[in-house]
Design a protein around this nucleic acid. Sequence first.
DNA 1: CGATTACATGTTATCGGTTACACAATATAA
DNA 2: TTATATTGTGTAACCGATAACATGTAATCG
Lengths: 349, 349
Amino acid sequence: MSKKRATLIDVAKLSGLSTGTVSRVLNGHPSVSDEARKKVEDAIKKLNYVPLSTARSLAKGVSNVIMLSMIEENPILPSTWRYELPVIQGIYDCLRDTPYNLQVGIGFVEEAQKSKFFENLLKDKYIDGLLILGSWPIDHRSLIYLEERNIPYVLIGCRSSVPTRAEVNFDNHGAVVEVIEYLVQLGHTKFALIGGLKEQLHMVDRAKGFRDALLARDLKVYPNLIKFGDYQIDSGYRLMLELLEEDPRPTAIICGNDLMAAGAIKAIHDKGYKIPSDFSVVGFDDSEISKVVDPPLTTIKAPTFEMGNLAVEKLCSMIQQKDMELEEIAILPCELIIRSSTGECNQKN
Amino acid sequence: MSKKRATLIDVAKLSGLSTGTVSRVLNGHPSVSDEARKKVEDAIKKLNYVPLSTARSLAKGVSNVIMLSMIEENPILPSTWRYELPVIQGIYDCLRDTPYNLQVGIGFVEEAQKSKFFENLLKDKYIDGLLILGSWPIDHRSLIYLEERNIPYVLIGCRSSVPTRAEVNFDNHGAVVEVIEYLVQLGHTKFALIGGLKEQLHMVDRAKGFRDALLARDLKVYPNLIKFGDYQIDSGYRLMLELLEEDPRPTAIICGNDLMAAGAIKAIHDKGYKIPSDFSVVGFDDSEISKVVDPPLTTIKAPTFEMGNLAVEKLCSMIQQKDMELEEIAILPCELIIRSSTGECNQKN
DNA sequence: CGATTACATGTTATCGGTTACACAATATAA
DNA sequence: TTATATTGTGTAACCGATAACATGTAATCG
């Protein structure tokens, strides 16, 4: 029943021209007469002809496919992929202007930390380049596989134990430094960190930024005020309760994401304190949550869309000039969004 | 510099066998001696050989690609793609067990409502099947293009003006009926709807469910208590303020998503009322927001992951048996998640 | 033991395009 | 005018696999 699809040969026959000419029309080659072009286009329309991309790929020696590999946490947490989505939109936004198709592969964190990750992921796939989107360390032996096969790739939001060709990330470290700077201006001196998953790369960098910023200001880093949870609201709540019992008691709390900040705020309110008069709280992500909590959350917004854009740009130029040597690492700045959960420090020293 | 990739012929030469035998090994054909198989496998390993999928596709006459086309709202709202993400996870979860690769294409709502949508989206693409994920009507002329080309497709969360081959959706209508049932048990009789975008399909169905449920209970439908916004917190806030001025004043408010519910709650609190003693509020999505607001939100959870799974299953069976006639529409039930934003109606009639 | 089968393997046409090359017709230069 | 580019088109080799078919060898049978 399903009538066979028309081939280029059918078009050639119907138009009375050769396959070469038809192909030239298809590829916008200049040396084709208007007359011939017209005939071919008519035949194409008449036959409903669409070129077969696999045949074209084979002949041209390119796949025109870029693969996006996403690293998923397992079990899936509600917070999974909050930050990844706008990155994808940025990727596709940039890809629209290229001949590349986007193929998606999803792997789990545990796999990504083993050596055969990309070998397995790319089985039976023919791609021109690879975007690697995740928040966890990538096994460098997996990357060797890509190097051997000369597959250009760009890491987004993650890195490996060894330096890689190209990375795009947002500035976790700088973002925390900036927010502490801001809070110091408001008179705060005792800072706490309610982190997310401790090993996750973004968190590692932010914890480092936290320490560095305090040290740079000659402020004390209290180890008992640095705690890690799991990005869920409950752990934010629980850790904040713990912090309220610590000595010294912090006046400014920086959280791993908006959800944990929401938990922290809840804990503070439950204990009868006020925000921001008693405590300043900062989130991360600028998610919708930041507008929902009371008071609205001061938070940090990562340039996710731009990251996606930039990653594609880089990858495309790597594909073009295969022998690109330079290791380029782009770290995009975040934006501090000030709302009402932060304010002057009212606690006298 | 980039050493050429090995081909099947290289493998054949190195192993001292013919291309036919190598191909048989690659495809797990039974009639290959263990000895030959071993030789081939060694050669493959030695050469780092990976078959070229485009060549394979061409020879086999299949693409092994399934395309997921997502419909994006423009301009991009913060709420865009909240519901789509777990669907994708469900899709991929199912796709892991198949030979299909997932390719993604993103279009905008306005495009999807024009006739050449899929023609443009599929330009230069060779796919075995198509998943269409969106919340807006699809132009049926676009679908004709798919029928003509005999491309199996499944609609997820959307539909066209004419019936289609296969659809997967969640039960918007039933979910609202269920929640009204529940609220009626609690003594409520005056219901309001704070809807999202009025033309969006999910919203259309829920608005219908709202009316149907009330009529079925012989309750009055007050047109002035049915309002539509844009899924953002501000519109939830504003519409709730309006509702507080209406006559009659509702006691139970059903919102288009959790974010609008959060806005509504804010408005209620700002006017000095209490939840759930004065008003019951229901959200939709079971997003993280529902746990963040105070009080925690009673809300409706759609079976998104399952939808993705089911859609792939359907599509695969359509691809297998090309001539599948049946128009199957699967409507999966939602789950009512009761938290503290709903309670007994305290207003005497 | 010769005939029949079953199995392992080699050979080659084929999938649907692209493109280097050849060649003719026309345009430009000398 | 003849020589030289320029332009448009056809021909066929080629991209890297698959699979139908042919062939040769060993196992099974009456």
